[in-house]
Amino acid sequence: MIVMDIKRVYCPVCNNKTRSAFRKDTTAHNLPVFCPKCKTTSLVNIENGKAEPIVR
């Protein structure tokens, strides 16, 4: 059985879990992430196993 280390993306507005998940080796720039709790869409960069929101 293969165990994968999957992390969740948290909403930068309300700090709730979103439906988006990523692996440790994932890289994404300007990824739109929707939060079902506060109904906002935020842009996120994912690098080195960390998701950081883009502040504009």
Rank of each mutant, 00 (worst) to 15 (best):
M1A: 12
M1L: 11
V3S: 14
M4T: 15
M4R: 15
D5S: 11
D5H: 13
D5Y: 14
I6Y: 04
I6N: 12
V9L: 09
C11K: 02
P12T: 03
V13H: 12
N15M: 03
K17G: 03
K17I: 10
K17P: 15
K17F: 02
T18E: 00
T18Q: 00
T18Y: 02
R19P: 08
S20Q: 14
A21E: 10
A21F: 09
F22M: 04
F22P: 01
F22H: 00
R23T: 14
D25H: 08
T27E: 15
T27Y: 13
A28D: 07
H29Q: 12
N30G: 11
L31M: 10
L31P: 02
L31K: 09
V33Q: 00
V33A: 02
F34P: 08
F34L: 11
C35V: 07
C35Q: 05
C35D: 04
C35W: 04
P36E: 08
P36A: 07
C38S: 01
C38G: 01
K39G: 04
T40A: 02
T40G: 05
T41A: 09
T41C: 06
L43G: 08
L43I: 12
V44N: 06
N45L: 07
N45M: 08
N45P: 03
E47T: 12
N48R: 15
G49R: 01
G49N: 05
G49Y: 02
G49W: 00
A51V: 03
E52N: 11
E52L: 10
P53M: 00
P53R: 02
P53I: 05
P53T: 00
R56I: 13
R56P: 12
R56D: 09
